[in-house]
Amino acid sequence: MTANNALLAFAGTMVLISVLLTWTVSVHWMWLTVFVGANLLQSAFTGFCPAAMVFRKIGLKTPCEAVATKT
């Protein structure tokens, strides 16, 4: 799994969890969904994503690094 795939899986999981918590616990959990969406939007324009930095630090590779190590 690459860092990009892990990032997409993490963001999707956080959105689903926040929707579940909004439905079962409190409407205020919707702010987590807003935060995840805003972070994804800003990272698309700036390239800065704290979660991606964490995934790279724990050893996940970017797609280019993953292809380079296969050969």
Rank of each mutant, 00 (worst) to 15 (best):
T33E: 01
P50C: 06
F55G: 00
V67A: 09
L60G: 05
N39I: 14
G47P: 12
I17Y: 07
T62L: 06
T24W: 12
A66I: 03
V34E: 00
L60Q: 01
L21D: 02
W23I: 15
Q42H: 14
G59K: 01
L60M: 08
T2F: 06
H28V: 15
S18N: 04
E65G: 08
G12H: 06
F10H: 11
S43K: 04
L20F: 15
L20K: 03
I58K: 00
V15E: 01
K70R: 13
N39G: 13
V15I: 13
M14Y: 02
V19Q: 00
V27D: 01
I17K: 07
L20S: 11
F35K: 06
L21K: 09
A52S: 10
G59H: 01
G59Y: 03
T2A: 01
L16E: 03
E65A: 07
K61Q: 06
A44L: 12
M1N: 05
F55Y: 03
S18Y: 04
L60F: 13
T46P: 12
S18M: 02
A38P: 09
N4E: 10
T33I: 07
A52Q: 07
T33F: 09
Q42D: 09
F35C: 13
F45S: 08
G47N: 08
A44F: 11
K57P: 09
M30L: 15
L41C: 13
T71G: 13
I58E: 00
T71W: 08
V27G: 14
L40C: 10
G12V: 11
I58H: 03
Q42L: 14
A51V: 12
L21A: 12
G12A: 10
A66K: 01
L7F: 05
F55Q: 00
T46K: 02
I58T: 07
T62E: 02
K61F: 02
M53S: 12
F45P: 08
L32T: 14
V15C: 03
F48H: 11
L32W: 12
T71A: 11
V19A: 03
L21T: 12
I58Y: 02
Q42F: 14
S43E: 08
V19M: 04
G59E: 00
T69Y: 06
G37Y: 01
V15Y: 02
N39T: 15
A38F: 14
W31Y: 15
G59T: 07
V19W: 04
L20I: 15
P50G: 13
G47L: 08
L21P: 05
V25C: 10
N4G: 11
G59Q: 05
F10C: 14
V27N: 03
L8A: 03
T62F: 07
M1L: 11
